[in-house]
Design a protein around this nucleic acid. Structure first.
Lengths: 235, 235
DNA sequence: CGCTATCTTGACTTTATTCAAGGCTTGTGG
DNA sequence: CCACAAGCCTTGAATAAAGTCAAGATAGCG
């Protein structure tokens, strides 16, 4: 990574940030004191607040929400283990960042990040690559929300979530993370419409919704190909 | 800018790219041989093609389109004078980039850009800041397409285009750049719906559509405040 | 056990789409 | 110069999709 920081603590921290930027979740680093935990619903960063730190997600997932006029929140992204949250180069957070389950993050104070980015081009490059990937993801979601039917949107959301959690073929299923209301806020639909489309997918035998004890939002995908086809169906 | 390249030509080119990344349109630079012109409809970059160059828009505007299954294209962004097109760090273009009017670009071969970014952290930083701004723009559009009514979407599009062209208060009006069909492709609506909402805005006295000779897509904004209010109206 | 939040389902309404026709512009060729 | 064709825009009527309103079911929690 080509670090040349002098202070050992700083070097460790730089290595840690670099590793984060390259997708590591820091499990191999000794980064005591910067780790934080959050429970579902905790606001990790709030839109408009000054950027005091940015962070790497060590485990768990978060949603990014834009508070809109009229109560309803709009969810613009869901981020998972290994991804960076917060705006290293901005002055204020653009969205609320809210924990979706038990989340462990590794938080870096803004000055440390700024110093690292200033001193280590590789870190800045890694951040740039990540940001471009994020832009791509945002545009894919934009196309889905703009052009797909309610059924295709919901199928696409399930498909994407399953892939993000590495559970597309897991017979035990996985947790959807979002409530029906949150899915609706992400896809530009209503709670009722999301629920109806889930029922349709279930009736078609593509998924099942076991609704087990303590896993109320569990989904099992029976036919990943049909799910993907449904997600890509034209309008 | 802190350039330390040795070759004069390279230094000039580096300065030019740097200036671009900081929002300049290169009018002050001698960058002969890299300039290109395109007419409306020309495909400047094609999705999937390898990235041979990226470019700065010296004048005119372009659209970024994702070809979707089923003929319809989805427009994910419109970019204007001073902005960068192409993916400096990617290997393939993610979208088609198509000229919306007479466009002059200043094109930089990929190796030159790669070298500059590798050697000059300030350039990489500028690109990062731009990319984050673009991500922000994409997410705002996502919220609009996901949650706003057809009328609010169209009002928002007109408002945003006017601001981008610096014509929000121009009594002479400005050119919308996109056909009704393209606006529909950007906002997730149909041609007919876009047309009807334009008519509503006209009937309400908020805009007029002069339809002059040779300026078929001209719009005059009579009441910018009402336009912005309409764009932000909840659902 | 009862409270609350979430989810599902049904009936009805609203919104935007689809289908269809016609008008305006622009450019081309007789 | 005019007629005609092509593309773009507008408008109307009918249809389909998703939203709204309402009621009940289920699960989690004190």
């Amino acid at each position: 990574m080509g670090l040349n920081a002098t202070c050992r603590d700083c070097a460790v921290r730089s290595q840690a940030i670099c590793a984060c930027l390259e997708g590591d979740t820091l499990d191999g680093f000794a980064v005591q004191g910067l780790q934080r935990r959050h429970a579902r619903g905790d606001v990790i960063f709030r839109a408009g607040d000054p950027v005091l730190a940015c962070a790497n997600i060590r485990s768990g997932s978060v949603k990014l929400t834009s508070p809109t006029a009229g109560g309803n929140e709009a969810i613009v992204a869901v981020m998972h283990r290994g991804e960076m949250i917060g705006q290293p180069t901005g002055t204020a957070h653009a969205q609320d960042v809210v924990a979706l389950n038990d989340v462990r993050i590794c938080s870096f104070p803004r000055p440390a990040v700024a110093r690292l980015l200033a001193e280590h081009p590789a870190a800045e490059r890694a951040l740039l690559v990540r940001t471009m990937a994020e832009l791509d993801r945002s545009r894919r979601l934009l196309v889905r929300v703009g052009r797909a039917s309610a059924l295709a949107r919901v199928a696409g959301f399930i498909d994407e979530t399953a892939r993000a959690m590495g559970a597309i073929d897991d017979p035990a299923g996985f947790d959807l993370l979002l409530t029906r209301g949150e899915i609706a806020d992400m896809l530009g639909l209503t709670i009722e419409t999301v629920s109806r489309q889930m029922t349709r997918l279930k009736t078609a035998g593509i998924i099942s919704l076991p609704r087990e004890q303590g896993h109320s939002r569990r989904v099992v995908i029976h036919d990943p190909v049909a799910l993907a086809d449904t997600a890509e169906a034209l309008d």
